[in-house]
């Protein structure tokens, strides 16, 4: 039995839900159902969907590889300037994605900070699928770090301290105690990162460009398609929404109930 919420909370909550759901209803109402099959199975649409799934999955893996250590350092250590560091690494959350794309361009572009170094190494990032993954990772990483750091702080350090006093080394504690404890948080962070990568558009267009099968992801294809074929754009938007809902649904269904220290 949960204590529930005061009844007056229901009205604004319903208002908020309606604000989010009504636009979704509106776009579903515009979907040209009779041509839906043809619109979403065109070669350009399939290429865009496959590219989006591929790049978003890769970005999510990168987010986990980079984000877990970042969240662990932010949650479990303290060093001077930590607050500033946290704000800075979370900056992509509030940065307009186009600005993020420009920042990436000024870093990894041909004339960017690392451009010449990369050129010497024979690495060409511009207009490649790798650029799409970089743009997506850049905007999605903070989502994973934020949710995981929150989970780490909520879980607390009690079990870790016990494990350490029993002789476990830091790596063992991380592997056997910390990560299993925050697995639900990690999973929801990864889902958020994936969803954000899937919807990424501004940084991709600015940094990676737009070419079918190489850099034109689903959101970019929708943006372009709207120019000539609004029905097609709406149909593809539905695909994007369905994929996102499926991913979020699957991930939350599997999530084990969180058992924090009590």
């Amino acid at each position: 039995m949960t204590p529930g919420v005061p009844r007056w909370l229901l009205a604004p909550a319903a208002l908020g839900a309606a604000f989010v759901l009504l636009p979704l209803v509106a776009i579903v109402a515009r979907v040209p159902w009779s041509d839906l099959g043809a619109l979403v199975t065109s070669e350009a649409s399939r290429d865009a969907l496959l590219l989006s799934l591929r790049t978003s999955a890769t970005s999510t893996v990168l987010c986990v590889l980079l984000g877990v250590p970042m969240a662990a350092v932010l949650a479990r250590t303290s060093f001077p300037g930590q607050g500033v560091v946290r704000s800075l690494v979370l900056l992509p959350l509030v940065l307009p994605p186009v600005v993020g794309g420009l920042a990436l361009l000024y870093t990894f572009g041909r004339r960017g900070l690392l451009g010449e170094t990369l050129d010497v190494l024979g690495v060409q990032v511009a207009f490649s699928t790798a650029a799409v993954v970089m743009a997506q990772t850049f905007v999605a990483l903070p989502f994973l770090v934020v949710s995981l750091e929150g989970a780490l702080r909520t879980a607390g350090e009690r079990y870790e301290l016990v494990a350490a006093t029993l002789g476990a080394r830091p790596t063992t504690v991380l592997r056997r105690v910390t990560l299993p404890l925050v697995l639900p948080g990690l999973l929801s962070g990864a889902v958020l990162a994936f969803a954000r990568a899937l919807g990424e558009f501004g940084a991709t267009v600015t940094f990676a460009g737009s070419l079918q099968g190489v850099t034109r992801t689903l959101p970019t294809e929708i943006y372009l398609l709207r120019e000539t074929d609004v029905d097609g754009a709406v149909a593809l938007s539905l695909v994007l929404v369905v994929v996102a809902v499926l991913v979020i649904g699957l991930a939350t269904r599997r999530r084990a109930p969180l058992r924090g220290p009590s």
Partner: peptide, 11 residues
């Protein structure tokens, strides 16, 4: 054989 097909002249 462009490396990118943009949506606007500005891009």
């Amino acid at each position: 054989a462009p490396v990118s097909e943009e949506r606007s002249v500005g891009d």
